[in-house]
Nucleic acid binder design. Structure first.
Lengths: 247, 247
DNA sequence: GCTTGACCCTGACGCTACGTCAGGGTTGAG
DNA sequence: CTCAACCCTGACGTAGCGTCAGGGTCAAGC
């Protein structure tokens, strides 16, 4: 038996928030004859779950729905919470690596400010994209998200493709050369250098980049118009050159 | 020269957001005679800075202020951004450790559900408390925040103190015993066990806990009323016992 | 010259999760 | 009985846009 003030301080939320939860039916306490709110111990438990789910980013309406349909075990809540945080931490790691790459890029006389910042922004966006639903619900759903995560925004694609134009043109002009020869090797290493520059050496992002190029057919038309065409022979030339380098 | 639509897609923000930034004076493009918005390349740069600062959690008004007073170098922005992310990542690490501790606690027949969840919530709160201002501005301000970060909410203090009541009573009953004796040793190890349980083994949090006890005089009166008093001799007994254990 | 469709503009209201009064009832101590 | 200390319920404010509604603009085709 607590009044609103005690209860709010006990649970670390404001009285106004309790009023709010009451009005939207998320947490309805008993009332005295005078209309005063009276909270009990079981309300503590529910409010804790509310706060926990809220910290996962769930909107209050969904929280209500979830708690009403299938109430949440403490262990489940903790596991879900932890998984969310772990995923966020991984995303942050990627972002930090990306920024470090951008910093190096800028310091080494980085000509293309926008490209570097774009990179950062893109990586940051990945952070935001992790929606709470996917985090709360099982692994299947999450994997779908993961798969789609490599998608790049059209703008970034545009920027990137501009960067590549020169290199591709040069490769195209060198198609006749020996893939193991010095010129081809230099082109291949420039190619990898560009890839690394834009991915911060992050394998996940590189995979995304690969998918992005593979998916060029589905790009918006206006982007495709400006983007350089990588014809199969160009790809093959570079791959041959990289294979030759390994031998 | 881009129109609003092109520009928005280029930079990954919505047209509506651009209108908003225009209205609040954050990013005012040129206009055609018909009143159409026209963005130019320098606007790209400014918008990038806006987005970057926004991702730090800065409110738009502050962003405007900052960009108007002292425009931001790219390198500075990147460094600030990275520092923020690194701090967040550290906080996440603490939170994850805390949750793992709570999970272990619950699994091992955790009697006190609320205490475990409280612990988690508290740790999560630490995450939120990292305000952007402190992250953006220099280290001095940050250290102040760090110092204050160990503060615990009154509710948690209340919970914790309930946990300790029994143990303290037992210690008090054993004050006459030999600090090196088996009983004292068991009490000391239970003491440390409780500390570890509540801190997830995290040294930062343990330090916070220490400060919290040291600061008991300043606790809210109602909490102090319910909290067990740790008298100096109790402290000394435990410290003697732990010292004896080291020998 | 006029229509058509694709864009662009400016309000204006909606949304989330509350913060912050204002105005008025309730409760317990003196 | 009074008075301070609480409690209640609207009602409006906040940030950062989303989402129409109503209306101007522009280039193309007839």
């Amino acid at each position: 038996m607590y009044n609103a003030r005690q209860f709010s301080r006990m649970c670390g939320v404001t009285v106004r928030a309790l009023h709010h939860y009451d009005r939207i039916g998320l947490l309805r306490p008993r009332r005295t004859s005078a209309g005063y709110r009276v909270y009990e111990d079981r309300d503590v438990e529910r409010l804790e779950q509310i706060v926990a789910l809220k910290s996962l980013g769930a909107p209050l309406a969904k929280i209500r729905e979830m708690l009403d349909t299938h109430p949440l075990g403490l262990a489940d809540a903790l596991r879900a919470q932890r998984r969310v945080l772990e995923e966020r931490r991984r995303a942050l790691g990627r972002a930090i690596r990306a920024i470090l790459a951008a910093e190096r890029y800028v310091k080494s006389g980085g000509a293309n400010r926008s490209a570097a910042l774009k990179k950062v922004m893109e990586t940051i966006q990945m952070e935001k994209q992790t929606e709470w639903t996917n985090q709360y619900y099982g692994d299947e759903a999450r994997e779908k998200i993961e798969a789609g995560k490599g998608r790049w925004s059209p703008e970034l694609q545009e920027r990137v493709s501009r960067q590549w134009t020169d290199l591709i043109a040069e490769v195209q002009a060198s198609l006749g050369e020996d893939p193991a020869g010095p010129k081809a090797q230099m082109l291949a290493s420039r190619w990898m250098g560009l890839v690394n520059e834009f991915t911060g050496g992050d394998a996940d992002i590189q995979a995304g980049l690969g998918r992005m190029w593979a998916d060029r057919a589905n790009w918006p038309a206006d982007v495709n118009a400006k983007a350089p065409a990588i014809r199969p022979e160009v790809w093959r030339f570079i791959q041959d050159a990289m294979a030759a380098a390994k031998r």
